[in-house]
């Protein structure tokens, strides 16, 4: 049952093992995590700690080995996928922001954002209208007709955020979204993510190594040796 009373995402004892037998590697050994609607949390940890594996499990692109995962109160994984159409799950309930914007180079800005609602069956006009609203909210409405190659790095990242929000997903996974940006732009992106999380009541999980933005999180999950440890962050205004 998916309601606003439940956290946007709840993970309990999530495990992931690569390989079998003696060569098997346990990348996740029982991860617990809960993120509420409108909340932005940081996920940090050294290389090889399991951040990307966790992100891929949360993004339903690889299958965990065990544990439970709920999105907005609905179990999507409980010792096995509980959803038949993972593609639709990713499309409708999970937004992705990557280290590089990875926009579709042959679509203009509006269509990059409108593509997601269109893939979900929303009509062209309505999808573009929604895209324009999001672009306006992210202050890139003036570049709506531009080609991706004409945008600056910061503008591309804003468009990528707009795309992640296009289907109003309860969960957004951001993989090193500020890595290529300078301090000012990185903090701007974090401020935007905070604003969008509140505005769209989305839970945003930000995987990062970026020391500049770590102090802005109110809650941080440290991941080490396949396990998460929650701690309070500084929660500085970005």
């Amino acid at each position: 049952m998916a309601t606003a009373d439940h956290p946007a995402i709840r993970i309990q004892g999530l495990r992931k093992r690569y390989g079998t037998g003696e060569t098997a590697v346990d990348a996740l050994k029982g991860v617990d995590m809960t993120v509420g609607h409108g909340e932005v949390v940081g996920l940090i940890g050294p290389s090889g700690s399991g951040k990307s594996t966790l992100l891929k499990c949360l993004g339903a692109v690889i299958e965990p080995t065990g544990g439970r995962m709920e999105i907005a109160g609905e179990a999507v994984y409980d010792e096995g996928w509980r959803i038949d159409d993972l593609r639709a799950l990713r499309r409708d309930r999970i937004g992705f922001i990557f280290q590089a914007p990875y926009l579709i180079s042959f679509l203009d800005v509006t269509d990059n954002v409108a593509l997601l609602p269109m893939l979900a069956g929303v009509g062209n006009a309505q999808a573009r209208s929604r895209a324009r609203e999001l672009l306006a909210a992210l202050d890139v409405a003036h570049r709506a007709s531009a080609q991706v190659s004409q945008l600056s790095g910061g503008e591309q990242q804003r468009v990528a955020i707009a795309r992640a929000l296009a289907n109003r997903p309860p969960v957004i996974l951001a993989d090193e979204p500020t890595a290529p940006l300078d301090s000012v732009r990185a903090l701007t992106v974090v401020r935007i993510l905070n604003d969008m999380a509140v505005q769209f009541q989305a839970a945003i999980i930000v995987v990062t190594h970026d020391e500049k933005i770590i102090p802005t999180f109110r809650r941080i999950y440290h991941i080490r040796d396949g396990r998460t440890h929650e701690e309070a962050g500084e929660g500085r205004a970005p």
């Binding site: 993004g59 593609r87 990713r90 579709i104 180079s105 997601l116 893939l119 979900a120």
Partner: peptide, 10 residues
């Protein structure tokens, strides 16, 4: 781009 398209539900 194909990977992104698949990831976002194409």
């Amino acid at each position: 781009e194909i990977a992104v398209l698949k990831l976002i539900g194409a």
